[in-house]
């Protein structure tokens, strides 16, 4: 089994108004950053998962995301599986 680090990024689904993101965007534009737009705020989750390979790790994290970590009605998420931390036989 190997141990993988996973990084999950969660954002509100496209089409849902991200009021928090809009407020921050407006505050930036009103100060020194008129060149900034399309700002969206999300959540960042990191975890380690034990699995036989990176595909298996991703499948586990995917299941955890759809069950609890994200709510698919309102959120999109992306999963990044990093190189294994260690291996034991």
């Amino acid at each position: 089994m190997k141990k993988f680090n996973a990084i999950i990024t969660i954002t509100l689904r496209k089409g849902i108004l991200d009021v928090q993101g809009k407020t921050v965007e407006h505050a930036l534009q009103a100060t020194d950053f008129p060149m900034i737009s399309q700002l969206r705020i999300g959540k960042y989750v990191e975890l380690t998962v034990q699995a036989k390979d990176s595909d298996a790790a991703e499948a586990i994290v995917e299941k955890a995301c759809s069950k609890l970590i994200a709510n698919p009605i309102m959120e999109d998420y992306s999963i990044e599986i990093l190189e294994p931390l260690w291996e034991n036989s």
Binding site: L12, I16, L17, V19, Q20, T23, N71, I73, M74
Partner: peptide
């Protein structure tokens, strides 16, 4: 809604 007994979800108030 989280338990699936009712549909939809409650988002942050638009006023924040």
């Amino acid at each position: 809604t989280e338990a699936g007994l009712l549909p939809g979800v409650l988002l942050k108030n638009t006023s924040l």
